[in-house]
Design a protein around this nucleic acid. Structure first.
Lengths: 135, 135
DNA sequence: GTAATAAATGAGAATAAGTCTCAATTAGTC
DNA sequence: GACTAATTGAGACTTATTCTCATTTATTAC
C-alpha cells in the first residue's frame, strides 16, 4: 500500500462506484447493505483504509462513534457536516467563503500563538434535521 | 436520574474534584489513574453520564475514539479543541470573539437555509503539538 | 437517631466496532 | 501462461463502553 504498486480490484471499485453513485456520506452499515454481500466486512475496513491512503476517500465519526465515509473529491471545496441527533442523518455543508477564509486566518494565528503545526480543521454542527422536526 | 432526586455521592464528588483540580480535558485512563482505584470503571462511566445529564460535565471523542471529559463550566466561554495527532494531547482554545460571533451568525443562516434546528457546534483542529515538533 | 426506600455502586459479564491472521485468490508483469 | 506481490474473505481477537444484579449508601419521614 505504500512503496509497492496498488491494484485495481473489485472491492475497491465496488466501494468507489457506490460512493460516487450515492454522493453523500455513508456509514459502514449502509455500505454493507447497499453492496449486498459483495464486500466482506473485513475487506471493507481494509479497502477504506487503502483508499484513504490513496487520498480518494475520507472518513470521520458518526454520533454513535461508528465510521462514516465519503468520496474525497479534490475538486469539491472544503466542507463540514451537520449531524442530526435524532435520526443520525449527516448533511454536507459549506461555510460562506469569507467565513471559511477568516477561519483559516484564525487557525494560522492559533498556530503561531501555540507554536504548533495545524494540518486540518473540522466544524461539526449538531442539530435536529428537517424530517425529525416534523415528528 | 431524571424525575427522581439525585444524590451527592463519593464517586461524583471524586470526579468533580479531580476535574476541578486538573482544569484540563482528561481521558478515561487518566481519570482512572489519577483516582487510583477509588472509582470502579463501570461507576466512572455511569457517573460521567449522570454528570453530563446534570450539565456539569461534557464529553467528546479523542483521536483514538475514546472518551475525553472536562468540566462544563457555564461561566467559562465557549471553546474548542486542538488534538495532537502524534501524542494525543488535547488543548483548549478560544476563537477570537469576532470570529466566534460570525460563526454563530453563519450557523443561524445554515439553520434557516436547511430548515433545521442547530443546538451546538464544535470546531476541531488537528495538529502536531509543540512538544512533538521538537522530536 | 433509626427505619424505610429510592438511588447509586462495584464486579464482572456482555456487546459490538474495528483490527488482525493466514490460507486462498487475484492482479500485474514478463 | 507462469511468476510474484498484492489483496481478499472468514472468522478469531481486541477493547472501549454498556449492562446486570446483588450489595451498599444517601435521603426522607418519623
Amino acid at each position: 500500500m505504500s512503496s509497492t504498486n496498488a491494484s485495481i480490484t473489485n472491492p475497491r471499485l465496488v466501494l468507489l462506484e457506490l460512493l460516487l453513485r450515492q454522493a453523500r456520506p455513508l456509514t459502514i452499515d449502509q455500505v454493507l447493505k447497499l453492496t449486498r454481500g459483495r464486500l466482506a466486512q473485513s475487506t471493507l475496513y481494509r479497502v477504506i483504509n487503502d483508499l484513504r491512503d490513496f487520498g480518494l476517500v475520507s472518513a470521520f465519526m458518526n454520533l454513535d462513534k461508528t465510521m462514516v465515509i465519503e468520496l474525497d473529491d479534490p475538486v469539491a471545496s472544503h466542507h463540514h457536516h451537520i449531524f442530526c441527533r435524532q435520526c443520525g442523518s449527516i448533511t454536507d455543508i459549506e461555510l460562506n467563503s469569507e467565513l471559511e477564509l477568516n477561519l483559516e486566518t484564525e487557525v494560522k494565528r492559533i498556530e503561531s500563538e501555540h507554536h504548533i503545526s495545524i494540518d486540518s480543521h473540522s466544524l461539526e454542527l449538531f442539530a435536529t434535521c428537517r424530517a425529525c422536526i416534523n415528528d
